[in-house]
């Protein structure tokens, strides 16, 4: 399995982290995972909702000191 791609979107506001994720997903292979770091609380909720809507996989979200790590797997 290839190394998980990381996007550091800390400091960016909604919908910046989501847009960065979508741009990365366009280039990723199916099955590849992408990790988004975000300090934006709205994006921590919006990204899993978007992932569910368009049919990718939300692997999980963790939060530490106001920074969310959201992991997404490209499914199609």
């Amino acid at each position: 399995m290839s190394e998980r791609q990381k996007i550091d979107a800390r400091g960016a506001f909604c919908p910046g982290p989501l847009m960065e994720l979508i741009a990365a997903l366009k280039l990723a292979q199916v099955g590849e995972e992408i990790e988004v770091l975000s300090s934006d609380k709205g994006s921590a909720a919006d990204i899993p909702a978007w992932v569910a809507k368009v049919g990718h996989v939300h692997v999980g979200t963790t939060e530490q000191d106001g920074c969310w790590t959201i992991i997404v797997r490209k499914a199609k």
Binding site: P15, L18, M19, I22, D46, W50, K53, V54
Partner: peptide
């Protein structure tokens, strides 16, 4: 517009 457009 942007979020709608990327959400199918």
């Amino acid at each position: 517009a942007s979020v709608g457009a990327v959400s199918d």
